[in-house]
Design a protein around this nucleic acid. Structure first.
Lengths: 233, 233
DNA sequence: GTCTATATAATGATAGAC
DNA sequence: GTCTATCATTATATAGAC
């Protein structure tokens, strides 16, 4: 999006250098000195601008979330997975951002939580739209389904090493995406099992373990009664 | 599996303490001193037994892989996902092991690669068996499907924070597993899409972009010709 | 805003007594 | 095998000149 080579402010250059190194090596393994060197400034200046190393991390987190949520139109309109696909399509340029997001999502930060909630909400909206349009069938549990679709969509970011290795590559390439597309769409279209014997068995097992003592309550007060499953086989 | 309270050797106590802290706080954020304190020994003794902090990590990695691969019967017999389910069922006791494995899988270690390859191979065998038994239909691409099933099965470990949060919990509990079971089995049984319009569209798009230059080769020599998709709608 | 120089604390690892 | 004491390094952060 930026026109020239460096109309970025020094502060922005430091922040971008930090994103690259935090994403590549992790927060703990990255020193303020290394960030300063990559940004071409002195270590003292980094602290001057961000107060502390943790302040620098917070600034990076906020920037990353803005890069997503700033595109709230795309998110809220239910194209969260499309956004991720778009990132992966331009994988070379997006690598630092992708690596940073991947580390965020597996650490415990409020920013990561906010980012994930945005993705999950967008996915839920997408499901609603596609169900209304007749493209998608009604899932058993919309919220849980949206949650797992979101989690599964983030797998190519969070576990990119094992995904690439599993396809004989050393990083996520367009070829990795290409080979993944049809098998995943096939899973999301036809499922894997030949019939619903496992599904029915699991439902019966769950009813046996929680149905007879339905007034137990436990730690989930608004516990939905299990909806019946239509048999398809 | 251990009978009394502490028939463990000192070396084993140090290693177990390291697994707890590495899993909970990460390798970099855990000091040798902290491990020593939790194990009830002096910092010097930790180095004496493992040579260095990195040696301690390697010992923990090996131990974790053995805890899996030592159950190679369960793995190779194609019950990799069943093993993970079993872990999650006994989630309280397994928490340190789970956290450690989760961190392993998102960092780049040879041990993690070996562990993942074992899980992926076991999943591939399971698919073969279930296809032969008529329980599972033939997937478009067995290896890629096995890869993604393995990755998806690890999501509750690797992204446990976001999974738990998405269900209103603060950690993975039996209730979280319980609410996840049917929606996931439903996805794996019926898929999500009402028909295969997306699948067909994607197949045509892929053929358009790579079919016309089928002798391109690129970096995947043994590139399968895209198998035709049977229309189901 | 940016630099150099430095204070202060914590870490991994070593040495040697017991 | 286990401890105490300590070294050498590295890190974050500060102070003050320019």
């Amino acid at each position: 999006m930026r026109s020239s080579d460096d109309d970025r402010t020094t502060r922005a250059r430091i922040r971008d250098a930090a994103i690259v190194l935090f994403g590549r090596d992790g927060f703990d393994a990255t020193s303020v000195r290394a960030v300063a060197t990559l940004a071409g400034v002195s270590p003292g200046l980094v602290i001057h601008h961000f107060g502390s190393k943790d302040g620098l991390r917070a600034a990076c987190d906020d920037y990353i979330v803005d890069e997503f949520v700033g595109r709230k139109s795309e998110l809220a309109s239910g194209r969260a997975s499309a956004l991720i696909e778009q990132w992966l399509a331009d994988v070379e340029r997006m690598t630092p951002l992708i690596d940073y997001v991947a580390r965020m999502l597996t650490s415990s930060s409020p920013s990561a939580d906010a980012l994930f909630d945005g993705l999950r909400t967008g996915t839920a909206s997408m499901i609603d739209e596609q169900v209304s349009a007749g493209i998608m069938r009604e899932p058993l549990d919309r919220d849980v389904t949206a949650l797992y679709i979101t989690l599964y969509g983030l797998v190519p970011l969070v576990m990119q090493r094992q995904l690439a290795r599993g396809l004989g590559a050393d990083r996520i390439t367009t070829e990795v995406i290409r080979r993944s597309t049809l098998p995943i769409l096939d899973l999301y279209t036809h499922g894997l099992y030949a019939d619903d014997r496992y599904l029915v068995a699991a439902q019966e097992a769950l009813e046996r373990s929680s149905g007879p003592r339905s007034d137990k309550g436990e730690n989930d007060p608004n516990q939905d009664p299990d909806p019946p499953i239509r048999r398809a086989s």
